[in-house]
Design a protein around this nucleic acid. Structure first.
Lengths: 139, 139
DNA sequence: CAGGATCCGAGGCGATACTG
DNA sequence: CAGTATCGCCTCGGATCCTG
């Protein structure tokens, strides 16, 4: 294959050149968890501190109990969030970012900032006629 | 584009509330595109330079033509990647990161690094007995 | 070579009802 | 309050065939 020298951004491409295909597998695995519809939002909401089940549900409009429960369970399973249940009455369960999730938090925050920064641009682009149309070429 | 006071701190993200609920909507929108199974991988692969359809398919094991086409179309629609078709024979179409996608590239790279760095930790956590079980409390 | 069209199964996801 | 259980829609996503 051709090399990255042609784009002039050679400095960005580090020691290993983007993604070694051998890493594709687990990158997919992790992205599958972290990149699904709700996980990032949960992490993002949790970055402001520990939160209870119902509060999470309120903070994330559109999520159903099913999905909130599933997502929290997944994240807890992966060790990204911690679950603490206090044996009181009424029952209280608090979810918080685990240290592992804490590192992700910064990335998610950047992603959200990027989204906030460019979402109008993206929406504008979506209204454009083509860029996806089978139009011509320019040799 | 508006500004590129990049890699610093924007006024959008406040100290306390992390994500203003009013932003939830488009965060979901963007995350839906960027956070799906394949988009990030395409962006990641594209970071090493422009690439043709078939090369992308080879670089991303497990992706089907349908999904590759769909993903590329979405990304092009959103202005994250550019599509250039050369009217030659045989036809040649090259996809590259658009400037908008270029900013995302860094974030995706961090995410991938994070994934590479912690994937074994995550897998280890997944093997743990509970943390998801409806067990007791720990006051 | 790049991608459109179609069929089809798996499961994501929401709505509702019930429990401790 | 914090879930679990069940049902059903509907999209995601892969396999296959076909075109320019």
């Amino acid at each position: 294959m051709r090399d990255s020298a042609d784009t002039g951004m050679a400095a960005s491409v580090g020691p290993c050149a983007s993604i070694p295909v051998e890493h594709m597998g687990f990158v997919r695995q992790v992205l599958d968890r972290v990149g699904d519809k709700w996980s990032m939002l949960v992490i993002a909401v949790l970055e402001s501190g520990p939160m209870r089940y119902t509060d999470l549900q309120r903070q994330i409009p559109g999520i159903s109990q099913r999905m909130l429960t599933r997502t929290l369970r997944q994240l807890a399973e992966d060790g990204l969030v911690s679950r603490t249940a206090y044996a009181e009455v009424p029952p209280r369960v608090e979810y918080a970012l685990a240290p592992l999730g804490g590192e992700l938090r910064d990335i998610v925050r950047q992603l959200i900032r990027w989204a906030a920064d460019h979402h109008d641009e993206i929406r504008a682009n979506r209204s454009r006629p083509d860029a996806t149309a089978p139009s011509e070429a320019r040799p």
